[in-house]
Computed example of a mutant assay.
Amino acid sequence: MQTPPTSSPAPAVPFNPVLPGIGLLIAFACGIAPIWVVPQFEQVFVSFGADLPAATRLMVDYPWVLSALPVPVLAVWALAPKRWRDLLACVAGVVLGMAAVGFTVWAMYLPIFMLGATI
């Protein structure tokens, strides 16, 4: 009598701390950079004497808001399927970091562009 073949459980996906670590590091670095960058621009904006656009005002008043970027990276890692969680956390950190840098640069240079458009 032959025994039916048993199916072995799927192998566990090993945790790779490098990928989520890279995502967290990039999100953290890009999130805290405005804390040092924005005050340097603020002195320039005061010399303009004009009203600031909403995005610039947001960054000037709350430069620390972007320091919460690692939280969504951790959320992606916690909620993603185990097979993809490490890679998705890394991608989320890189994408959020790039978006934060892009938004910060745009918000800081927007008053300068608006001033140039009026001249």
Rank of each mutant, 00 (worst) to 15 (best):
V37S: 03
A54G: 04
L115W: 01
R57W: 02
I32G: 04
I112M: 11
A50G: 03
A33R: 08
T104D: 10
G102E: 09
T6P: 02
A75Y: 11
L74I: 13
D86S: 15
M59T: 00
V76I: 14
G23A: 10
P5Q: 05
G23Q: 10
L52T: 02
P5F: 02
P70H: 06
S7Y: 00
G49H: 09
L69D: 07
M1P: 09
V105Q: 05
A99S: 12
L69N: 12
L115F: 09
D61I: 06
A10I: 08
R85I: 04
V73M: 06
T56I: 08
L88N: 06
V95E: 01
W84K: 12
G116T: 08
V101H: 04
V91H: 07
S47W: 01
L66A: 12
M1C: 08
F103T: 00
F48P: 04
I112V: 15
N16W: 04
V13Y: 00
Q40L: 13
L96W: 06
I32S: 07
P11S: 13
L66S: 14
V105F: 11
F28L: 15
G116D: 12
S8L: 11
L66N: 07
A75R: 00
A68S: 11
G102N: 11
V101G: 00
P34K: 02
V65W: 12
K82E: 13
P4Q: 13
T104A: 14
A117G: 02
S67R: 06
A78E: 07
A10R: 12
D61P: 05
M108E: 10
F41V: 08
A68Q: 03
L52N: 04
P53G: 03
L79K: 11
G49T: 00
A55V: 09
A27Y: 11
V73S: 08
G31F: 04
R83T: 12
D86A: 15
L87I: 00
V94P: 03
A55E: 11
L88A: 14
A10P: 00
W77P: 07
V76Q: 01
I26W: 01
V65Q: 04
P17K: 05
P34N: 05
P9G: 06
L96F: 14
A107G: 00
P17C: 04
P34F: 06
L79Q: 10
P39I: 00
G116M: 14
P14N: 10
A117N: 10
T6D: 05
V94W: 07
F15G: 01
M108D: 03
V71A: 14
L110C: 08
